[in-house]
Write a protein that binds this DNA or RNA. Structure first.
Lengths: 231, 231
DNA sequence: TCTCCATTTCAACAACTGTTGAATAGTGTG
DNA sequence: CACACTATTCAACAGTTGTTGAAATGGAGA
């Protein structure tokens, strides 16, 4: 039995009836490969394999891997910022603790399925090209401004300590939620002695309670029992 | 003018009088390359170039890149755990706030120069091989146990809230310091509107104050003014 | 019909990679 | 002296990579 003749494999058609690959599918594939292998460790061919297309197509749609990474940011971060802007409207008269909790729900909605990607983002923040750092900073700034505004309003309304630095406080609130989304799934048994999703929920609550005690006026103002059911 | 004849380059000597490269130097080089490029993106040849040796030497000393990564953990994390074990001794009668602050000083001492490496560690926690995850978990567990013990002792001494989960609380305390070490240098102007080192110090203090308010009994028990000078 | 355009694939090239076995160079021991 | 051992380099191989230009394919419009 002779082995299959490689020259006999059917040639894929090109042009309009070729396998259609839109850029969203390419970006999804890139995200998966970046998450598994880092940006440098993610080869164009691995991304193409993941997307089920020819590597040259990536060059047709994007200039480089970095351009793909930036496109992923451009796809992901503006909707997050929009959701935050909604909460941060000055006309929003919801209680401050509720607004802060809703911030965390926004981050959870937009990031909870991006486990490996966040390590990649951090790597780029710390060791990436200036272009990447600048783009990340720009996007994060837009989201962060909303968080600062909510905290400032909380201070003005007398709900939060007047000595708080809104930028730092926003950083603490958000970064800890991101840590929780990243690490608790991997380490749930060790951190909480509870399994999976239960661990995540319990840790989020414990964090928000600690945070609230740390920032609230008067000290230890109570959080209502149904807060944590708000999605 | 003819170009230099590549065959005429001097051959490097081998054997005992060859350029001496000990494994510490290899690991330093690996850490730098891992930090810049991730583990997958770090080629053996790049590490060898960074170390100034032949790539085959890496195979002489280590089985693989992963083995190098694990050796880096083995080098770095036990001294950290040892320092924490010293603070966590049950006979240590220092005030609880001081012991918690000292925890942060230990992490600062051992990790403050490893900026890119922490993203690599996180990537391995989330997406690494089972071997890497297990090794990381083992090391982190040893350190984390000290943190839990200190928090438990704080609860027993009536300094900390009795409803705190020591594991979660330890996680919050430490992870936020790690976030601060990683991200504040990169984003100091945006987070604090202060430059570099000043931003780091100010953010650490703000975090510890918030944390302390969140965990202390009675609420808002005061931290002494000279705490933050403790290194 | 022909031309243009958009999209996708093919093919190829130079460079890089991981890895291996052999060679080299000393030292110590019997 | 010969041999064994250690540490380092050289050379080579097969495989993978990034990237590019050309080719193929269909649809739309003149």
């Amino acid at each position: 039995m002779k082995p299959p003749n490689p020259k006999a494999s059917p040639r894929k058609t090109r042009g309009p009836k070729a396998q259609k690959v839109d850029t969203a599918l390419l970006l999804d594939a890139a995200q998966r490969v970046f998450s598994a292998s880092g940006i440098k460790g993610a080869s164009i061919r691995a991304i193409a394999r993941e997307a089920g297309c020819d590597p040259a197509l990536i060059y047709y749609h994007f200039e480089s891997k970095e351009a793909m990474f930036l496109a992923l940011l451009d796809r992901k971060l503006p909707p997050l910022a929009q959701d935050l802007e909604f909460i941060a409207e000055a006309s929003n008269l919801e209680p401050t603790y509720l607004r802060l909790w809703k911030i965390s729900r926004v981050y959870r909605r937009h990031f909870s399925r991006d486990t490996g990607f966040r390590a990649v983002l951090r790597g780029q923040i710390v060791s990436g090209t200036e272009g990447a750092k600048e783009a990340i900073a720009r996007h994060i700034q837009r989201a962060a401004r909303c968080n600062w505004a909510i905290i400032e309003q909380g201070i003005q309304r007398g709900d939060l300590r007047p000595d708080l630095n809104p930028r730092m406080t926003g950083f603490f609130l958000v970064r800890m939620f991101m840590e929780i989304f990243d690490l608790v799934p991997a380490f749930s048994e060790r951190i909480t002695q509870m399994p999976g999703e239960q661990a995540l929920v319990a840790t989020e609550r414990a964090w928000f309670e600690l945070f609230w005690r740390g920032v609230a006026v008067p000290p230890v103002s109570a959080l209502p029992a149904d807060l944590f059911s708000v999605e």
